[in-house]
């Protein structure tokens, strides 16, 4: 499917998010830029603490409650970063929705799922009571919850983890948003359920013509589901482009390392490959390339300057002075 002719609905430009802890500035997100078109799925991958979740939270206006967010998030001709809370509130949930990692805590345990679905509908639609109820049943049905009408009266603890994540998706999508931010929506679920939930998200994204930003640390998930991929490390995007191209010929040594550490198609008792070392602490980033201390193809300039994200082919960007030219991972 070619996306070239589609205009992006979300454009993130030079997004920076900084938190302050004990008088020190922590640059959680640095110079992040990407765009998402309708019906397109962007995968955001990286280790824990690489800034994936903070990027999502910065887009939807959660991060600015705790830190400084600068840059631009263009959405339908306006900038979400500069938008006052009062105006942003009408975009949240209605035009942009978000689902979370932990289905056990992302629903209010004291209210029935019916009430929580209706709450979303009351906030974002003009539907009357009866219509809201019908729509709530329809949404639960849509996300694949059996005997939806009865289950509206159930409390979150009466659902399994996977079912709760379905409820969460129903609530998030009740108002027909055009962008879904999914923050590791399957990480807390069983492997078999993971695939079901991903399929559900993708199917709904297609049906509702919705853009999706999918945060995950699972490259296998990305390979199956995403159109584009952005790899994050220490708050920066180090490589991005169409999924197939990136996975077929990764340019950044970190991407190569990530792909090598996916345990697939290996004979038994092969030691797992991993990227040596640990990500740098955000308050003590190296002066040069943030990945240099762990990088096997580190060269002299890497220690002096930070490589900028540059186009290497038509639609691919890599931030590296010494990009890998002929690497093979075991995902693509």
């Amino acid at each position: 499917m070619s996306m070239e002719d589609q205009k992006p609905i979300l454009e993130v430009n030079e997004l920076n998010t900084t938190f302050h802890r004990n008088g020190r500035a922590l640059p959680a997100v640095r110079d992040v830029s990407f765009s998402v078109a309708r019906g397109e799925v962007l995968g955001l991958v990286g280790e824990s603490g690489s800034g994936k979740s903070v990027t999502l939270r910065s887009i939807i206006g959660l991060a600015r409650r705790y830190g400084d967010v600068t840059g631009q998030v263009r959405w339908k001709g306006s900038d979400l970063v500069a938008m006052p809370d009062r105006v942003l509130r009408h975009k949240q949930g209605r035009e942009i929705a978000m689902i979370f990692q932990e289905p056990m805590t992302s629903l209010n345990p004291l209210l029935t799922v019916g009430l929580q679905l209706e709450e979303s509908l009351r906030a974002h639609t003009d539907l009357q009571r009866k219509a809201r109820h019908d729509r709530a049943v329809e949404m639960l049905d849509l996300v694949g919850i059996p005997s939806a009408a009865q289950r509206l009266k159930d409390y979150p603890h009466q659902f399994s983890g996977g079912m709760r994540q379905r409820v969460m998706i129903a609530i998030a999508l009740a108002a027909n948003p055009k962008l879904l931010l999914a923050d590791e929506p399957t990480t807390a679920l069983d492997v078999t359920i993971q695939a079901q939930i991903l399929d559900l998200i993708l199917r709904l994204a297609q049906d509702m013509d919705m853009g999706v930003v999918l945060v995950t640390h699972d490259l296998g998930v990305v390979a199956q589901t995403c159109d584009n991929l952005a790899v994050m490390y220490a708050g920066r995007i180090v490589e991005q482009g169409p999924v197939r191209d990136v996975l077929r010929a990764p340019g950044h040594p970190y991407t190569v390392g990530l792909m090598r550490s996916v345990p697939e198609n290996l004979p038994p008792r092969t030691p797992l490959s991993s990227v040596p070392g640990v990500p740098p602490s955000l308050d003590a980033l190296p002066t040069g390339c943030v990945f240099a201390p762990r990088c096997s193809s580190c060269i002299e300039p890497c220690l002096q300057d930070r490589p900028a994200l540059t186009l290497i082919t038509d639609r691919r960007q890599v931030a590296c002075f010494n990009p890998v030219t002929n690497a093979k991972g075991n995902v693509a």
């Binding site: 206006g61 959660l62 629903l107 998030a172």
Partner: peptide, 14 residues
């Protein structure tokens, strides 16, 4: 610390 609070915010609730 529970996501339902964050979920409420991103759903645009007051």
């Amino acid at each position: 610390g529970n996501d339902y609070a964050a979920a409420g915010i991103v759903m645009g609730y007051s």
